[in-house]
Amino acid sequence: MSNTFTSDSGSGGAERLRLFAQPVVAAALVVGVLAFAYTQRDNVIIARNVTASTLLTLTWQHFLISLAVAVIVVAIAVPLGVLLSRSWARRVSPLVIGLANIGQAAPSVGLLVLFFLLTNGTTGFWIATLPIAVYALLPVLRNTIVGLQQVDRSLIDAGRGIGMSGAKVLLSVELPLSVPFILAGLRTALVLAVGTASLAWFVGAGGLGELIDTGYKLSNWTVLSVGAVLAMALALLVDWLGGLAERYLSPRGLR
């Protein structure tokens, strides 16, 4: 069994529940943990590490990495997926998917560290973003291919039969009908990106993971919790946005 689920929750009722509850929970988490930290603002460690500017910077870094990953992934995986789904690539595509599946088994922290070491210890935004993008490539690639392959062959035949060119069929029929799949893959990739971006601090790219590490190193559980909870809230929010996109950006006739 492949680990492709079109929608990660895999059930209509659960999906609707999450669409409604997730942003609420995320907001509650943010408010809750910040209020909690606020009550302890006398503590010097907390006061120094949990400042508005720190939080904003780290959150922004985290968000930016995820956004960059998303853009890179879409720019590479969707066209690549289109190419691999064409009939002439039929023999190559299982190979590529197989390779990508193996890549997915790799630990994300391992990829980050390897890239870091291979660039001789360079730190920074791209040192985190690139390996995360590679890691997040698979869900979108796989879903693009599956999405295109599941398009009813008789629709392509009908399209060519009434005189649409191959390109027109791809753009007007195949791709629109694959959008739900591609969006689902993108959602998974985004969640992966946010999750892995929590490790970006390993290579000096900041992100909310840094706060978790600071808290851990200082044995201050409040600081740690703020970082962890904010990261969770960000992930829930991004996933929720992805769910909205899945639901509302899909072509009308398919819903």
């Binding site: 990660d8 895999g10 969640v191 929590s198 490790l199 993971g209 851990y216 990261a231 969770m232």
Partner: peptide, 16 residues
């Protein structure tokens, strides 16, 4: 499925 969304490092850290 919400658990899956959460960054593993964050969940892990929170449990320490």
């Amino acid at each position: 499925s919400a658990v899956l969304t959460v960054p593993s490092f964050a969940l892990f850290g929170l449990l320490i």
